[in-house]
Computed example of a mutant assay.
Amino acid sequence: MRIRPTAVVLALALATLAGCGDDAEPTSSGTETGRQQASRSSNNVPTEETQEGVAPAPSTVTSAPGLASSGPGQVTVPVYFVGSTPQGKRLFREFQRVSGDDPLLAAADAMTAGDALDPDYGTLFPGGSFASVTEEPGAIVVEVADDGWSTRAAGMSRREARLAAQQLVYTVQGVAQSRLPVRVEAGGEPVPLFGIDTAGGLRNAGPDGVLAFVNVTTPEQGATVGSPLVASGVANSFEANVPWEIRDGSGAVVKRGFTTAEGWGNKLYPWRTKINVSKLPAGDYTFVAMTDDPSGGEGGGPTEDSKDVTIG
């Protein structure tokens, strides 16, 4: 596990715009809610119901006055990576500290390299980096270093190509805190990205088509935490129920509960909870947040996002 300095949480995100081609909307069936799931105790695992206040919804663009400072010459930026979900590959957001000299390019570099703190995340970009990323009147302009990304890489499907384009769009729009269209250029002229025409500017697809249905913002991967453990993130989960678990090094569940997101059904909504971990022995654990699964696994199972932490 690679551990890096703790990032500062930002209230960023992106509003729903045009959907992404052949991505299906999620469906749910059954009647059991996350509260009912969380209340079933097995092996004497403690259960807990918590509902705390939440930060402004990161699925809407806000008038935040700029990126948070993370130290001398640094800012904290959102970077979108790719991870596995029951719906296939989706985007997960991770906040990272980068140089404040050129945060747009630094975030794009982390994205293309797949340089995520969480080992469950990766990238669809097959190596390489962009030459520059600049915010200009009416667009965010991304300059490619060569024509290596003009066509799909070997083994890349059309859906993966569209998701890779969205990985770029969500990242640079998140850093710029703007929904400006993204143009990919070479020598000042528009060029395709993995076979996708970018001349008219790439726009962010609807979150339900490209984002994972649950994403943990805090605790961060590799963090050392005390009691209460404060967890937060975003989710689109059945009836807004967000079950969570704490697992020990063997994978056994030592504590479980649920919290409630601000909404559900059409986008990702913020959730937040505080968990009393004072009775857990100090050591390494994994915090897992998930979507409610009223189908009992028949629909592919819940989406999960996990973070390895140390309880001190």
Rank of each mutant, 00 (worst) to 15 (best):
Y285F: 12
A139M: 02
A165M: 02
R2K: 13
L193F: 09
G100E: 06
P192A: 01
S132Y: 00
S29V: 12
N43I: 02
G66T: 04
L10M: 14
P26K: 06
T76P: 07
R247T: 13
I196P: 11
R272Q: 10
D102V: 01
D292T: 13
T33Q: 09
A289V: 13
V277W: 03
L117I: 14
D23I: 03
R256E: 14
A252F: 10
A55G: 04
D101N: 13
V169C: 03
G233D: 04
A165Q: 01
G283K: 02
G257S: 08
V98Q: 02
I3E: 14
P270V: 10
T85Y: 02
P126L: 01
A68V: 15
E185S: 11
S178R: 02
V79S: 05
G138F: 00
I311T: 03
L202G: 04
S150Q: 14
A154I: 07
P72M: 07
T27P: 03
V82M: 07
V61Y: 11
V254S: 00
R203P: 04
A199S: 15
L117H: 14
A110E: 09
V75M: 06
N241K: 01
G301K: 00
S129D: 09
A164K: 10
D120L: 07
R93E: 11
E245H: 09
T198N: 02
A110S: 13
F130P: 08
A235K: 05
F194N: 05
D101Q: 13
F238S: 00
S39G: 14
P228A: 00
T286M: 10
S29Y: 09
V184N: 05
F81K: 08
G299D: 10
T123R: 01
G73L: 01
F125D: 04
A231V: 11
E298Y: 00
Q166V: 03
T171Q: 04
L163G: 03
P207V: 15
L168E: 08
E185V: 15
K279T: 15
A145W: 05
A223S: 15
A38V: 05
R272Y: 06
E239H: 11
F238E: 06
P192D: 02
R2A: 13
A145I: 10
A235H: 00
D305E: 03
G53E: 07
A252N: 12
V277P: 07
S69I: 01
E220T: 05
G296P: 07
T224V: 15
D102S: 08
A145M: 10
F258T: 00
T151L: 12
T134E: 14
G312R: 14
M1V: 13
G66H: 08
E239C: 01
Q36E: 14
S70W: 08
V54R: 12
G187S: 02
I3G: 05
E220A: 06
P228H: 04
G155P: 01
L280S: 06
R152H: 05
Q166K: 11
W149D: 01
E25H: 12
P270I: 08
G127N: 00
E32T: 15
T50N: 15
M290F: 04
S63P: 07
R93F: 10
F92G: 07
L105H: 11
A116R: 04
T198G: 05
G21K: 08
E160H: 03
Y269D: 08
M111Q: 06
A240Y: 00
D292P: 06
Y170E: 10
